[in-house]
Design a protein around this nucleic acid. Structure first.
Lengths: 127, 127
DNA sequence: CGGAATCCAATGGGATACTG
DNA sequence: CAGTATCCCATTGGATTCCG
Protein backbone atom coordinates (compact mmCIF):
# COMPACT_ATOMS: atom_id res chain seq x y z
CA UNK A 1 0.00 0.00 0.00
CA UNK A 2 2.29 2.70 -1.25
CA UNK A 3 1.51 6.27 -2.08
CA UNK A 4 3.63 6.21 -5.20
CA UNK A 5 1.11 4.20 -7.14
CA UNK A 6 -1.04 6.38 -9.38
CA UNK A 7 -4.49 5.03 -8.65
CA UNK A 8 -7.57 6.40 -10.34
CA UNK A 9 -8.07 8.41 -7.22
CA UNK A 10 -4.68 10.05 -7.62
CA UNK A 11 -5.60 11.09 -11.10
CA UNK A 12 -8.92 12.29 -9.82
CA UNK A 13 -7.30 14.40 -7.19
CA UNK A 14 -4.74 15.97 -9.47
CA UNK A 15 -7.15 16.77 -12.22
CA UNK A 16 -10.19 17.80 -10.28
CA UNK A 17 -9.31 17.43 -6.63
CA UNK A 18 -12.76 16.57 -5.40
CA UNK A 19 -14.91 17.82 -8.19
CA UNK A 20 -18.35 19.21 -7.64
CA UNK A 21 -20.26 16.30 -9.22
CA UNK A 22 -18.46 13.80 -7.01
CA UNK A 23 -19.00 15.90 -3.96
CA UNK A 24 -22.65 16.34 -4.81
CA UNK A 25 -23.07 12.63 -5.32
CA UNK A 26 -21.51 11.80 -1.99
CA UNK A 27 -23.62 14.49 -0.34
CA UNK A 28 -26.70 12.75 -1.60
CA UNK A 29 -25.55 9.22 -0.96
CA UNK A 30 -24.29 9.92 2.56
CA UNK A 31 -26.64 12.55 3.89
CA UNK A 32 -28.24 12.50 7.28
CA UNK A 33 -30.67 9.63 6.74
CA UNK A 34 -29.27 7.85 3.71
CA UNK A 35 -26.87 5.68 5.68
CA UNK A 36 -29.64 4.36 7.90
CA UNK A 37 -31.91 3.75 4.93
CA UNK A 38 -29.23 1.94 2.97
CA UNK A 39 -28.36 -0.06 6.03
CA UNK A 40 -31.93 -1.30 6.27
CA UNK A 41 -32.35 -1.94 2.57
CA UNK A 42 -29.11 -3.89 2.44
CA UNK A 43 -30.78 -6.31 4.81
CA UNK A 44 -34.10 -6.70 3.07
CA UNK A 45 -36.63 -4.89 0.90
CA UNK A 46 -38.69 -2.51 2.97
CA UNK A 47 -41.94 -0.70 2.66
CA UNK A 48 -42.28 2.92 3.60
CA UNK A 49 -43.55 2.33 7.09
CA UNK A 50 -41.06 -0.45 7.67
CA UNK A 51 -38.38 2.16 7.26
CA UNK A 52 -40.16 4.60 9.53
CA UNK A 53 -40.28 1.97 12.22
CA UNK A 54 -36.68 0.96 11.67
CA UNK A 55 -35.51 4.56 11.86
CA UNK A 56 -37.73 6.10 14.49
CA UNK A 57 -36.08 9.52 14.45
CA UNK A 58 -36.80 10.26 10.82
CA UNK A 59 -39.88 12.23 9.87
CA UNK A 60 -42.11 11.25 6.99
CA UNK A 61 -41.03 14.26 5.01
CA UNK A 62 -37.34 13.64 5.40
CA UNK A 63 -37.72 9.96 4.69
CA UNK A 64 -39.64 10.71 1.51
CA UNK A 65 -36.96 13.14 0.39
CA UNK A 66 -34.20 10.68 1.17
CA UNK A 67 -35.91 7.87 -0.73
CA UNK A 68 -36.55 10.08 -3.76
CA UNK A 69 -32.95 11.19 -3.85
CA UNK A 70 -31.59 7.67 -3.60
CA UNK A 71 -34.06 6.48 -6.21
CA UNK A 72 -33.13 9.28 -8.56
CA UNK A 73 -29.48 8.31 -8.31
CA UNK A 74 -30.26 4.68 -9.09
CA UNK A 75 -29.11 3.56 -5.66
CA UNK A 76 -32.47 2.17 -4.62
CA UNK A 77 -35.47 0.96 -6.55
CA UNK A 78 -39.10 1.78 -5.86
CA UNK A 79 -41.73 -0.63 -7.01
CA UNK A 80 -45.46 -0.50 -6.53
CA UNK A 81 -47.02 -3.80 -5.56
CA UNK A 82 -50.56 -4.19 -6.83
CA UNK A 83 -52.17 -5.36 -3.67
CA UNK A 84 -55.02 -3.62 -1.98
CA UNK A 85 -54.33 -1.27 -0.46
CA UNK A 86 -51.36 -0.45 -2.64
CA UNK A 87 -47.98 -1.35 -1.22
CA UNK A 88 -44.70 0.29 -2.15
CA UNK A 89 -41.52 -1.64 -1.78
CA UNK A 90 -38.05 -0.20 -1.75
CA UNK A 91 -34.98 -2.27 -2.40
CA UNK A 92 -31.33 -1.73 -2.97
CA UNK A 93 -30.04 -1.88 -6.54
CA UNK A 94 -26.81 -3.56 -7.63
CA UNK A 95 -25.36 -0.08 -7.91
CA UNK A 96 -26.38 0.64 -4.35
CA UNK A 97 -24.89 -2.60 -3.11
CA UNK A 98 -21.51 -1.31 -4.17
CA UNK A 99 -21.83 1.32 -1.49
CA UNK A 100 -22.05 -1.20 1.27
CA UNK A 101 -18.36 -1.97 1.59
CA UNK A 102 -17.24 1.67 1.81
CA UNK A 103 -20.03 2.48 4.21
CA UNK A 104 -19.24 -0.49 6.39
CA UNK A 105 -15.61 0.59 6.43
CA UNK A 106 -16.70 3.99 7.67
CA UNK A 107 -18.95 2.49 10.33
CA UNK A 108 -16.14 0.22 11.46
CA UNK A 109 -13.85 3.21 11.72
CA UNK A 110 -16.42 5.16 13.71
CA UNK A 111 -17.10 2.22 15.97
CA UNK A 112 -13.43 1.56 16.61
CA UNK A 113 -12.33 5.09 17.30
CA UNK A 114 -15.37 6.69 18.87
CA UNK A 115 -13.99 6.37 22.41
CA UNK A 116 -10.72 7.94 21.36
CA UNK A 117 -12.58 10.71 19.59
CA UNK A 118 -14.73 11.43 22.60
CA UNK A 119 -11.58 11.83 24.66
CA UNK A 120 -10.21 14.20 22.02
CA UNK A 121 -13.39 16.26 22.26
CA UNK A 122 -13.14 16.46 26.02
CA UNK A 123 -9.54 17.62 25.77
CA UNK A 124 -10.42 20.22 23.16
CA UNK A 125 -13.41 21.51 25.10
CA UNK A 126 -11.38 21.74 28.29
CA UNK A 127 -8.52 23.67 26.70
CA UNK B 1 -38.98 -9.68 23.37
CA UNK B 2 -39.66 -11.99 20.46
CA UNK B 3 -41.82 -15.07 20.47
CA UNK B 4 -39.71 -16.86 17.93
CA UNK B 5 -36.02 -17.31 17.55
CA UNK B 6 -34.41 -14.21 16.18
CA UNK B 7 -33.38 -14.82 12.62
CA UNK B 8 -29.78 -14.06 11.68
CA UNK B 9 -31.14 -11.21 9.67
CA UNK B 10 -32.76 -9.63 12.69
CA UNK B 11 -29.64 -10.04 14.75
CA UNK B 12 -27.65 -8.48 11.98
CA UNK B 13 -30.02 -5.57 11.81
CA UNK B 14 -29.63 -4.91 15.50
CA UNK B 15 -25.88 -5.00 15.16
CA UNK B 16 -25.70 -2.63 12.29
CA UNK B 17 -28.27 -0.13 13.39
CA UNK B 18 -26.59 3.23 13.19
CA UNK B 19 -26.57 4.90 16.54
CA UNK B 20 -26.66 8.62 17.15
CA UNK B 21 -23.04 9.10 18.29
CA UNK B 22 -21.76 7.30 15.22
CA UNK B 23 -24.06 9.20 12.96
CA UNK B 24 -22.98 12.49 14.53
CA UNK B 25 -19.33 11.58 14.17
CA UNK B 26 -19.73 10.72 10.51
CA UNK B 27 -21.72 13.90 9.98
CA UNK B 28 -18.77 15.86 11.26
CA UNK B 29 -16.08 13.84 9.57
CA UNK B 30 -17.80 13.75 6.19
CA UNK B 31 -19.56 17.07 5.96
CA UNK B 32 -19.55 19.32 2.97
CA UNK B 33 -15.92 20.45 3.11
CA UNK B 34 -14.27 17.87 5.33
CA UNK B 35 -13.53 15.44 2.53
CA UNK B 36 -11.71 18.08 0.52
CA UNK B 37 -9.77 19.24 3.55
CA UNK B 38 -8.76 15.73 4.54
CA UNK B 39 -7.83 15.01 0.97
CA UNK B 40 -5.39 17.91 1.01
CA UNK B 41 -4.00 17.22 4.45
CA UNK B 42 -3.39 13.59 3.54
CA UNK B 43 -1.00 14.92 0.92
CA UNK B 44 0.90 17.40 3.01
CA UNK B 45 0.57 19.76 5.96
CA UNK B 46 -1.20 22.92 4.91
CA UNK B 47 -1.59 26.41 6.17
CA UNK B 48 -4.94 28.14 6.23
CA UNK B 49 -4.54 29.91 2.92
CA UNK B 50 -3.03 26.85 1.30
CA UNK B 51 -6.34 25.18 1.94
CA UNK B 52 -8.31 28.13 0.64
CA UNK B 53 -6.33 28.01 -2.58
CA UNK B 54 -6.66 24.26 -2.85
CA UNK B 55 -10.41 24.41 -2.30
CA UNK B 56 -11.45 27.57 -4.11
CA UNK B 57 -15.17 27.15 -3.50
CA UNK B 58 -14.95 27.18 0.29
CA UNK B 59 -15.46 30.42 2.15
CA UNK B 60 -13.24 31.47 4.99
CA UNK B 61 -16.05 31.04 7.46
CA UNK B 62 -16.88 27.51 6.39
CA UNK B 63 -13.23 26.53 6.24
CA UNK B 64 -12.66 27.79 9.76
CA UNK B 65 -15.68 25.86 11.01
CA UNK B 66 -14.57 22.70 9.23
CA UNK B 67 -11.06 22.91 10.61
CA UNK B 68 -12.29 23.51 14.16
CA UNK B 69 -14.62 20.56 13.97
CA UNK B 70 -11.96 18.22 12.64
CA UNK B 71 -9.49 19.47 15.23
CA UNK B 72 -11.98 18.97 18.03
CA UNK B 73 -12.47 15.37 16.97
CA UNK B 74 -8.75 14.73 16.94
CA UNK B 75 -8.74 14.12 13.20
CA UNK B 76 -6.42 16.99 12.38
CA UNK B 77 -3.87 18.90 14.40
CA UNK B 78 -3.41 22.67 14.52
CA UNK B 79 -0.04 24.04 15.40
CA UNK B 80 1.09 27.63 15.55
CA UNK B 81 4.50 28.30 14.06
CA UNK B 82 6.28 31.19 15.71
CA UNK B 83 7.35 33.08 12.65
CA UNK B 84 6.37 36.58 11.83
CA UNK B 85 3.69 36.97 10.85
CA UNK B 86 2.34 33.98 12.69
CA UNK B 87 1.82 30.87 10.62
CA UNK B 88 -0.67 28.13 11.44
CA UNK B 89 -0.11 24.68 10.11
CA UNK B 90 -2.72 21.98 9.91
CA UNK B 91 -1.84 18.35 9.54
CA UNK B 92 -3.59 15.06 9.67
CA UNK B 93 -3.29 12.99 12.85
CA UNK B 94 -2.75 9.23 12.98
CA UNK B 95 -6.42 8.97 13.89
CA UNK B 96 -7.31 10.98 10.82
CA UNK B 97 -5.14 8.84 8.61
CA UNK B 98 -7.38 5.92 9.42
CA UNK B 99 -10.12 7.72 7.54
CA UNK B 100 -8.19 7.72 4.33
CA UNK B 101 -8.94 4.19 3.23
CA UNK B 102 -12.71 4.43 3.72
CA UNK B 103 -12.81 7.83 2.08
CA UNK B 104 -10.76 6.66 -0.84
CA UNK B 105 -13.11 3.74 -1.25
CA UNK B 106 -16.00 6.18 -1.43
CA UNK B 107 -14.22 8.38 -3.93
CA UNK B 108 -13.37 5.38 -6.06
CA UNK B 109 -17.00 4.33 -5.97
CA UNK B 110 -18.16 7.80 -6.97
CA UNK B 111 -15.59 8.03 -9.71
CA UNK B 112 -16.46 4.63 -11.12
CA UNK B 113 -20.21 4.94 -11.10
CA UNK B 114 -20.80 8.63 -11.68
CA UNK B 115 -21.60 8.14 -15.38
CA UNK B 116 -24.06 5.39 -14.58
CA UNK B 117 -25.62 7.55 -11.90
CA UNK B 118 -25.98 10.49 -14.23
CA UNK B 119 -27.83 8.27 -16.65
CA UNK B 120 -30.06 7.11 -13.81
CA UNK B 121 -30.83 10.73 -12.99
CA UNK B 122 -31.70 11.51 -16.58
CA UNK B 123 -34.02 8.54 -16.70
CA UNK B 124 -35.66 9.55 -13.45
CA UNK B 125 -36.06 13.17 -14.46
CA UNK B 126 -37.53 12.20 -17.81
CA UNK B 127 -40.11 9.83 -16.35
C1' DC C 1 -50.71 2.75 3.41
C1' DG C 2 -47.80 6.09 1.30
C1' DG C 3 -47.36 9.95 0.63
C1' DA C 4 -48.20 15.61 -0.72
C1' DA C 5 -48.83 20.31 0.91
C1' DT C 6 -48.18 23.85 4.02
C1' DC C 7 -46.31 26.52 7.76
C1' DC C 8 -42.62 27.73 10.48
C1' DA C 9 -38.23 27.71 13.25
C1' DA C 10 -33.53 26.73 13.13
C1' DT C 11 -29.44 26.31 10.75
C1' DG C 12 -25.96 26.86 7.14
C1' DG C 13 -23.43 29.37 4.57
C1' DG C 14 -22.19 33.51 1.44
C1' DA C 15 -20.64 38.38 1.40
C1' DT C 16 -18.43 41.87 3.56
C1' DA C 17 -15.77 44.36 6.83
C1' DC C 18 -12.43 44.46 10.34
C1' DT C 19 -8.23 42.83 13.42
C1' DG C 20 -3.87 41.17 16.06
C1' DC D 1 -1.54 35.60 7.61
C1' DA D 2 -5.24 33.72 9.97
C1' DG D 3 -8.71 34.50 11.47
C1' DT D 4 -13.55 37.23 14.01
C1' DA D 5 -17.79 39.58 13.64
C1' DT D 6 -22.07 40.79 11.42
C1' DC D 7 -25.68 40.80 8.34
C1' DC D 8 -28.70 38.35 5.61
C1' DC D 9 -30.67 35.00 2.72
C1' DA D 10 -31.60 30.22 1.24
C1' DT D 11 -32.11 25.74 2.51
C1' DT D 12 -33.23 22.09 5.92
C1' DG D 13 -36.11 19.85 8.60
C1' DG D 14 -39.92 19.36 12.26
C1' DA D 15 -44.96 19.48 12.97
C1' DT D 16 -49.29 19.27 11.21
C1' DT D 17 -53.00 18.51 8.04
C1' DC D 18 -55.01 16.36 4.21
C1' DC D 19 -55.61 12.89 0.38
C1' DG D 20 -56.29 8.75 -3.07
Amino acid sequence: MTDTDPSPREVLREEFRIEAPHRELLDQALDKWSLSVLNELCERPCRFNDLRRAIPAVTQKSLTATLRRLERNGIIDRRIVNTRPVAVEYRITPLGKGLRAPIDALLDWANTYLPQIERARDTFDAG
